[in-house]
Design a protein around this nucleic acid. Structure first.
Lengths: 169, 169
DNA sequence: ATAAAATCGTTTGGGTACAAACTATCTCAC
DNA sequence: GTGAGATAGTTTGTACCCAAACGATTTTAT
């Protein structure tokens, strides 16, 4: 945990501030830990696996999605990776400049852009992904093996609860 | 879920790419869902609760930590909020400009900066936090009540697994 | 006492991150 | 066939986000 205060300390401090109000501390703990965990994992991955190859988290996700599904349309990468098309546009410009992927206008629909990895990009992913997965394994190592499926399910149901209309993003 | 491909589709596509290699798909699913969930919750909160008050997620976290623990040192806010002191410095400048918090050099240690909310900041949090917690409640609503404690624990143990030395950030 | 090391917060530089506006292309109704 | 609307991707503007370098202050070792 990153913080210096314990959960109990925090709860009693919050209770004082909003005394009389009914709060859901359990929900607070889950939400709070969700972000600590996500950030901790992201930072860990960036430092241990990604930094040696000068990749950010987002750049890696883009490469991964393209690697698995190429040729793939830009909009699908954004949906699959979970970021906006504006963000994606910038990241892809960077990756294109580093000769890791290519953009090509679709011949059947002039609005679409098809994305592929370059041979260099494919070589990188083939070497990098096993290392990445090894760290993912490390990340869940403290969760009892039996509960890992459950963990994935709970996280999925959190997504369901707050995902309204996919729309544009 | 944001993506268009099912877990099974993804697994079989990955398996093809790295055929022969042993991968931990369960770890992959947990890590992947962790980020989808964290992002989904963050976006949801920003849109429903924070945007009406012109606050970003990070700005809200800063205000929250200061609200609960003021007077508080800058370094503690960063540790508690889970971001770098560089990030914090920028966000606090914004919040100071909006008259929501104040910075004051410590009298006992010239390196430290003590942070407090302004009356305006306190009024905002007192009104905003109950709304925020109501949404947090909504976020975990799909997880069976009995499993919520477990969920918080699992997320905590993910943090433990990847948090090496607290150091500086 | 004093120089070296450690600590704290800010600044700098590069890379995300998203909404909104924009351009280009396609679809559909008529 | 043609124009209104929808759709895809990029650009713009603002705000994060972090590592590394920095200046100011304090602590530590001598």
């Amino acid at each position: 945990m990153a913080g210096e205060f314990t959960l109990t300390e925090t709860e009693s401090a919050v209770a004082q501030k909003l005394d009389g109000l009914v709060l859901d501390f359990e929900a607070m703990a889950v939400a709070s830990n969700l972000f600590r965990a996500a950030n901790a994992v992201r930072n860990h991955m960036e430092r241990t696996v990604l930094a040696p190859h000068d990749l950010t988290w987002t750049a890696f996700v883009v490469l991964w999605v393209v690697w698995i599904w190429e040729p793939i349309e830009t909009r699908t990468i954004a949906a699959e990776g979970g970021f906006s098309k504006a963000t994606l546009s910038g990241v892809m410009t960077t990756l294109e400049g580093r000769d890791l992927l290519t953009r090509e206008k679709s011949t059947t629909d002039g609005r679409l852009v098809m994305v592929r990895l370059t041979p260099r990009g494919r070589r990188l992913m083939k070497k990098l992904f096993p290392k990445f997965n090894a760290e993912e394994k490390n990340v869940v190592s403290q969760i009892p093996k039996k509960q890992r499926g459950e963990a994935a399910d709970m996280l999925r149901s959190i997504c369901m609860a707050v995902t309204p209309e996919p729309k544009d993003r």
